[in-house]
Computed example of a mutant assay.
Amino acid sequence: MMADLSDLAAFVAVARAGGFRDAARTVGSSASSLSEAVRRLETKLGVRLLNRTTRSVVPTEAGAHLLEKLGPALGEIETALDVVNGFRDRPAGTLRLNVPISAARLVLPRIVPPFLAAYPDINLEIIADDSFVDMLAAGCDAGIRYEERLEQDMVAIPIGPRQQRFAAAAAPSYLDRKGRPEHPRDLMSHACLRGRFASGALTEFEFERDGEIVKVEPKGPLIVRVGAATDLAVEAAVAGVGIIYLFEDWLRPHLDSGALEPVLEPWWLRFSGPFLYYPSGRYLPGPLRAFVDFIRSSS
């Protein structure tokens, strides 16, 4: 019993997107055509693959098992077809990157426009997600992570700034009211704006000076989802709600304008920049090879 490859691909797209409309936007099709494709596949296999409600679409147990096997298999098919790219004058196809929201905001804006200008036949899809996901299982070709989160069987290439800092800052009006901290532990008596990761863990404020590392978990009136709602915390800091701790580059426009004032700057923690990563020992699809070469030549 051979199922149509396009129907299988439609099922994978819908299952990953969690809905027909979102999947349609991702693959450039219509929700009705995807629905019909999944219906054909279920009829041919004789089993329901997706549970559909008015709010969501989730795989059944059978669908989840099929999705687990299909994702890598379809990836291998795309890779096999991409071999043809080697016979083209210019690489073509789709490149999917899984990146943290901070990288989408702070690293990729300087890279994506010139890359797309250099490779007009490549379609770039960015999945910005601060969850620690399996990049291949998510249907991506490569991703961006920081060194401490890289897996050992991955090839890692530096991308973006090679050194970054976390910065603490607050509106001058807040500091005039509450005082200016002189040591990281002083933050325990301040209103601090914190983030919560997808795992549920809250962000720490970590500082370093002359080899001394200080970690604090201050309290505050606002907690936001890391990445997705970080801009809300920034705006709250600008409005004088409290002290924010974030990538220096994210806060830089407000620091330069004076809307935010540096706090404890001699203690700001430095860390190495992010890496583009992808599995070792695998054939590189044309779009990914072009992106890797572009990053290497730009560094």
Rank of each mutant, 00 (worst) to 15 (best):
E208C: 01
C192G: 00
H183V: 07
P184L: 06
M188F: 12
A237I: 00
Q152G: 08
G139D: 09
A142I: 14
F166E: 12
M154H: 10
Y146W: 14
E151R: 14
L136Y: 11
R145C: 05
G227V: 11
V234N: 01
P184E: 06
E204Q: 15
A156T: 13
A229T: 00
P172H: 09
E148D: 13
R185G: 07
K178D: 08
R225W: 00
V224Q: 04
A138H: 10
G143I: 09
E206S: 15
R149A: 06
P172I: 10
L202A: 02
D186Q: 01
I223D: 04
G195P: 00
Q152S: 15
I127E: 13
I127A: 10
C192K: 06
A156E: 12
E208V: 02
R162G: 14
G220V: 05
E182D: 07
S189D: 13
P161F: 02
A198T: 14
I144K: 06
R180Y: 01
E235M: 07
G195D: 04
R194G: 03
R225M: 12
A156W: 06
R149W: 05
K215S: 15
F132V: 13
Y174Q: 04
L193C: 02
S199C: 10
L187W: 09
Y174T: 05
L232G: 01
I126L: 15
G160K: 09
V224T: 08
T230Q: 10
G143V: 10
L232F: 06
Q163R: 15
I144Q: 09
G220Y: 00
M154V: 11
C140Q: 12
G195R: 15
A198R: 11
H190D: 03
V224Y: 03
R165H: 13
G143L: 11
G211I: 12
A170R: 01
A170L: 01
D186F: 07
A169P: 07
F205M: 15
A128L: 07
D210F: 09
D210T: 06
I127T: 14
E151A: 08
M135H: 08
A237L: 05
P184Q: 09
A170F: 02
Y174H: 08
L136D: 11
G160D: 02
A169Y: 07
E148K: 12
E147W: 07
L175S: 04
A198H: 07
R165P: 02
P181I: 03
S189P: 00
G195T: 14
Y146M: 09
R185V: 14
G160N: 10
P172L: 04
M188L: 15
L193P: 05
E235K: 08
R194M: 00
A137I: 01
L193A: 01
R162K: 14
F166A: 07
T230W: 05
A229C: 00
P184H: 05
P184A: 03
F207A: 00
E182Y: 01
A128D: 13
D186R: 09
G211L: 11
V234R: 00
K215Y: 04
R165G: 04
G179Q: 03
R194V: 02
P172C: 10
R149F: 09
P161S: 13
P161K: 14
D231A: 06
I223N: 04
I157V: 15
A229F: 02
R196F: 02
T203L: 09
A170P: 01
E148Y: 12
